[in-house]
Simulated assay, not measured.
Amino acid sequence: MLATEVPFTLPRGVLDSSGALHRDGVMRLATARDEIEPLRDPAVRANGAYLSVLLLARTVVRVGGIEPVTPEILENMFAVDFDHLQRLYERLNASGEVVGTVTCPGCGDAFDVDLSAIEDGGLGG
């Protein structure tokens, strides 16, 4: 079965209006509409770099208790977190791999894995 949503952990996290930190979230696979609709937006026409913000706003389902994830939330993310989401988006939607971030229970380090390998029994399963 194809996983259409993938969990992730942001390197730094998003601060909400009350100062709470949110790091864990979910991104879904993009549809053709997700990639077409933002091209009509005047902000993208004025600045092509804004396309990434709108693509992520359409595909990041939630970050912690923040739902929906709006362009304004993404604009205020730490650069390292925004970059992390951009790279995850590219990996999820550019190939057949389904990548997620997991945390080692022993050392606490976070790293990306191909989640399709888990379904196929490729990670010791």
Score class of each variant (00 low, 15 high):
67 E>C: 07
96 G>E: 13
3 A>I: 07
79 A>L: 08
119 E>D: 11
17 S>Q: 13
14 V>D: 08
35 E>C: 10
59 T>G: 01
35 E>D: 08
93 N>P: 00
80 V>G: 01
51 L>K: 00
19 G>E: 13
2 L>C: 12
71 P>F: 04
124 G>H: 10
28 R>Q: 04
3 A>W: 04
60 V>Q: 00
45 R>Q: 15
58 R>F: 05
100 G>S: 10
91 R>L: 10
35 E>V: 07
32 A>G: 12
12 R>Q: 15
96 G>I: 08
48 G>Q: 11
123 L>C: 06
38 P>C: 10
22 H>F: 09
78 F>Y: 08
106 G>K: 14
36 I>E: 14
49 A>I: 10
106 G>A: 15
30 A>K: 02
104 C>G: 09
110 A>E: 13
116 S>V: 14
15 L>K: 15
106 G>V: 15
103 T>C: 06
3 A>P: 01
96 G>A: 10
40 R>H: 13
122 G>A: 08
4 T>N: 08
42 P>F: 12
9 T>I: 15
70 T>Q: 00
17 S>C: 09
96 G>R: 10
23 R>Q: 14
86 Q>C: 14
125 G>D: 13
54 L>F: 07
105 P>N: 06
79 A>N: 06
115 L>C: 03
26 V>T: 08
90 E>Q: 11
45 R>N: 13
72 E>G: 08
39 L>R: 11
28 R>S: 03
44 V>Q: 03
6 V>F: 15
52 S>N: 10
76 N>K: 09
36 I>N: 10
105 P>S: 03
40 R>G: 09
89 Y>N: 03
113 V>N: 04
27 M>L: 14
51 L>C: 07
123 L>E: 09
32 A>L: 15
96 G>K: 06
59 T>F: 00
49 A>D: 13
17 S>P: 04
47 N>Y: 11
108 G>H: 04
43 A>F: 11
3 A>E: 05
11 P>M: 13
95 S>C: 05
4 T>Q: 08
81 D>I: 00
29 L>M: 10
90 E>G: 08
17 S>L: 14
123 L>S: 05
9 T>A: 12
37 E>P: 01
87 R>T: 11
81 D>C: 01
39 L>I: 06
109 D>H: 14
20 A>P: 01
19 G>D: 12
61 V>N: 01
85 L>M: 04
36 I>T: 13
20 A>R: 14
114 D>N: 12
67 E>K: 03
76 N>E: 10
81 D>Y: 02
16 D>T: 07
8 F>N: 03
27 M>Q: 06
88 L>H: 03
106 G>F: 13
51 L>W: 05
25 G>T: 06
92 L>A: 02
43 A>T: 03
